[in-house]
Design a protein around this nucleic acid. Structure first.
Lengths: 244, 244
DNA sequence: CGCCGGTTTGACATACTTCAAGAGAAGTGG
DNA sequence: CCACTTCTCTTGAAGTATGTCAAACCGGCG
């Protein structure tokens, strides 16, 4: 459990300043948080929190990708959430979590000890409010995921997954040109995310490739060649959830 | 869209007083809510809210069962939530919802107009806090459901579903004796809940019946004969989530 | 009585999994 | 720099759980 502490960035220069739990804070409130925060890093594959473990800290994800997952007795596992920068780990008023949190890529967290943080939540409506928004956003995406898991075909699942990657990455740097995107996880992890096997994931990726909808420059980096066809393959309706 | 208004029960005598959004309110706060509340009833099958529709009210479910569902272009549908008494419909700060809400059985709601309610939330930390708890509970059960949808077999899904019914109903009246339970929905609705077809649901019910794990007194009423075997069939581990 | 929605049951189809083998990359140590 | 291992990914062949289609059943109700 290698958890090197790293120097923190100043809040005012933090890349997730405007989206994380602190998004609505004014300067004074930010100073309050700044006093108790500390950075931690994890390598890809490291477990950040075990299911059932006592939560000693809560955190904002600053950099990288982490996943929430649940496992059945016999080892079948299902990811139940994907955390991207600005997402929050841990909940006010909860001492435990019922899933494992794992670093999918190298990850940097902005951590707060749970107790002091809860006091701040209690006294800072702007933090409490933002926390509520984040929880509701997660609920929305959990429900989209339920539709995918329960009703979509393998092909639709893969297409939806790719479309989500495109959307969540071009949000950050969009200037007309489509860059290569990279899969933040292995086929196996994608399978656990989509409720499939890794073989099916592989076959569906290659099917979309053969149809010219996507192309790979290497096993992890790809490009979308035909975004309309990709969308058609998702099974969603025309404007599906694009009401940002 | 038949929405007869019904006389409200006094909050102090309300059956969901201690679990709903008002659970943490004191007498004064309750009076505030009492002033703006009103009851509405819906018949089984009626749509309470359409996806995308403007939310004019939010509500607590007082009596009955309602469901949240999402539908793909070609008609495949997936339930993404089941609302039981004390569950909340609608979210502060959200003007729309991205799923349909339908009355599964006859339903009674305790409604609040959205705007006045949001003002109350803003000024009443006890309501805001409870709303947060309810959202987090929903998030937890959404994640359990994702594991079920993504990784469980038809048999495990049915067993899990029955176990949930047992748990949520004996919570209310537990006195050692196990009464008949009734399925609050049709096979078709159960199928949409579990990500199956109605035929598979029917077959799995009958399989469990043949094995003596459950028995039916009629198509809707059943009894659990072997609760240990039922639990084994869920695929969950021994103490699975029973940390109430 | 006859219809009707919900349900059961059977026969068949198939999407996905499972099992197995091999191909590429990527790292390790000599 | 080259074996050697290891890990991830691909591809094929075969198996199976679940879906699809169709018919019959059942209880309730006009």
């Amino acid at each position: 459990m290698n958890v090197p502490l790293r120097a923190s960035v100043k809040c005012s220069e933090c890349p997730i300043r405007h989206r994380a739990v602190c998004a609505r804070c004014d300067e004074d409130e930010l100073a309050l948080l700044e006093k108790v925060k500390c950075y931690r890093s994890y390598q890809a594959g490291e477990v950040i929190l075990w299911r059932g473990e006592d939560l000693e800290f809560v955190a904002s994800l600053v950099k990288g990708v982490a996943s929430l997952s649940k496992t059945l007795e016999d080892g079948r596992t299902q990811m139940v959430g994907l955390l991207l920068p600005s997402d929050f780990i841990g909940r006010p008023g909860r001492e435990r979590i019922d899933f494992d949190v794992t670093a999918t890529t190298d990850v940097t967290l902005c951590c707060f000890e749970r107790r002091p943080f809860e006091r701040i939540v209690h006294e800072t409506p702007n933090v409490a409010k933002r926390l509520m928004e984040l929880a509701l956003d997660e609920l929305d995406s959990a429900r989209d995921w339920m539709l995918l898991l329960g009703r979509k075909t393998a092909r639709e699942k893969i297409a939806t997954f790719i479309e989500m990657l495109v959307r969540r990455s071009t949000v950050t740097d969009f200037n007309g040109v489509q860059h290569d995107l990279s899969l933040p996880m292995t086929r196996d992890q994608i399978a656990n995310y989509l409720g499939l096997t890794l073989e099916t994931v592989s076959r569906q990726f290659n099917a979309l490739k053969k149809e010219g909808i996507i192309s790979f420059s290497d096993r992890r980096r790809f490009e979308v060649r035909d975004i309309a066809a990709l969308h058609d393959a998702t099974g969603d309706d025309a404007d599906g959830g694009l009401i940002d």
